[in-house]
Design a protein around this nucleic acid. Structure first.
Lengths: 327, 327
DNA sequence: TTGTAGGCGTTATCAG
DNA sequence: CTGATAACGCCTACAA
């Protein structure tokens, strides 16, 4: 293993000089720098980040915690994060959080071990408490999900308003029997969207109906299909369905069509997230889009401020209703 | 910042003893251990991984390099990797490689900085050379993609055979005018599947046809749609399309249907990968499935052996044709 | 502009 | 079973 000392010896300089070259200090004579550089490549020297961070107390590494790598919703956010992070010379590492009691501790150790200069958490807010406890003292921010009333800065859309907008749109189209397919109550957005849905209906003087709210526990296609099938089986069939994710919405449409009904004529369907597939599906999905890249960019900005010792205010970004053909 | 020394002082023992407790050495008296543990939680001590790795020369971190976080194909593989890694007490970090000339160096530094005990690379084989150069001396293996003839151990299906099987199946269904929608020639699989396709046709004595091979440069839905549209515009319309990814296949079906033709009656379509959506799409997609989790598990096993100084042989895993309704 | 030397927090060796 | 102490590789005063 070749260390700074070896490079120094090879170049006939001191370790201090090598370090200066490594860190682009101006105060190195051109010719000396050349010699050092040559030695570095001759010996194929690589810095040891462990040693460096031990000394400098920073790693220039950002950790992004997310609950599901397979959900492309997060991918776009990460892209936004990375763009900003890289422009500030931070490298972004992603870790899929496993909410497994047994493994929890190991994960937690990852966080608490000072390996990262900052953490961005997209985990369900119910597990953010765990994170909070572990990264205590370390800079971190939340993205999309957050613990309401908490001190941790976060970026998110207004899920309550978004759901309300969706229902308002359905109402404006003359729909009155509007059902909701919700996912997993561990997620904050689930509760907020539920409230938005409820309040919008209430404001229109529409009462709740038996079986009109289904909780799937996840966002897989088939779960949406199952939920919609249950709704269709009821005596009091809805004329519109709001699903909290596009995947659920697509599953729901499958069920509707399988039941011999038409979308949107018999039942209008609105999803959430505007995934790439939403536009290509038949019928193209009407959905609530989130500014995903921007979400990531803002989150990283918040983190940057946090790492600088500031206490930035949380941000709410705008959503938008993407009207296609399913509603 | 509280260090081992602080814990030692608090517990009235030496740093050596604290370290022993931290690392579960058996040779610590129960009562002493208790005292240390109490001090640790009283002071809320956290190990400094940088210091630890500087000392031990290992980080217990595995880096997974992939070209696209948004592609859920990789998510399943990562899940397989993580399962094995965690059972061996390694933590898995994912980094989306950015093949951007300007940023290349920073990335590269990440790899070469000894922060990881091992690397699993799923990048296109054309960029694996870069990786190879940078992680030189570090244990790494390739997954899915690999540089043929290289010494680096890898896991993959036999893309050549898989494509051949798909064409054989189409042939067995009486199709003769079989087209190929390929993606990005930076990927090894693209070339191999092309060869499989070509050889299968050749073996059946079917000559190449003008415009029957389209390269899209990516796997987005709309690219498949575009490619298929071009094929349909030709005088010599195909009666079957093999697409190297399900997303391309779905895009292709869109184009076929939009042209007033039926799938599979007029044109059969086969995809690749068996993504979650393949089964829910209408018509459900016939596709070549890969054992993704297993791919990840085997890759991690290979890496484990590599890290142990061995030179494991590469592995080829079986693919399977999932017959649904698009072909 | 360059060199010397100390220490970051941890683990491991060697005594006791 | 426990303690003192010497590295690990790097950066950065401070000195020259």
């Amino acid at each position: 293993m070749v260390a700074v000392a070896d490079v120094a010896r090879h170049a006939g300089v001191s370790t201090a000089t090598v370090s200066r070259v490594l860190n682009n200090h101006a105060s190195v004579r051109g010719e000396t720098r050349e010699r050092v550089l040559r030695a570095i490549s001759a010996l194929d020297y690589r810095v040891d980040v462990s040693a460096r961070s031990l000394r400098t107390a920073q790693t220039r590494l950002i950790l992004v915690l997310l609950p599901d790598l397979g959900n492309s919703y997060y991918a776009s956010i990460v892209r936004g994060i990375s763009a900003v992070a890289r422009s500030h010379d931070y490298e972004v590492l992603v870790c899929e959080t496993v909410v497994n009691e047994a493994r929890e501790r190991a994960h937690v150790q990852m966080l608490s071990s000072r390996l990262y200069d900052g953490v961005i958490c997209m985990d369900p807010y119910t597990t953010q408490r765990l994170v909070a406890e572990e990264v205590k003292g370390q800079p971190w921010v939340a993205c999309s999900e957050f613990v309401p009333g908490d001190q941790v800065p976060h970026v998110s859309i207004d899920h309550y308003l978004a759901a309300k907008d969706a229902v308002l749109y359905l109402l404006s189209k003359g729909r009155r029997r509007i059902a909701l397919i919700n996912s997993d109550s561990r997620y904050l957005y689930a509760g907020q969207r539920l409230n938005g849905y409820l309040d919008a209906l209430r404001a229109a003087d529409i009462g709740e109906r038996e079986g009109y709210i289904q909780n799937t526990g996840g966002v897989d296609y088939y779960l949406g299909e199952l939920a919609a099938r249950r709704m269709l089986a009821g005596a009091d069939r809805p004329d519109a369905i709001l699903a909290v994710s596009d995947t659920l919405a697509i599953g729901a449409i499958k069920a509707v069509v399988a039941a011999g009904l038409a979308v949107p004529d018999d039942i209008a369907v609105i999803g959430f997230d505007d995934i790439p597939f939403a536009g290509i599906f038949e019928p193209p999905l009407t959905t609530i889009g989130q500014p995903r890249e921007l979400l990531g960019e803002r989150a990283m900005h918040l983190l940057l401020q946090r790492m600088a010792g500031q206490s930035p205010a949380s941000e709410t970004l705008p959503h938008r209703l993407v009207i296609r053909q399913s509603a």
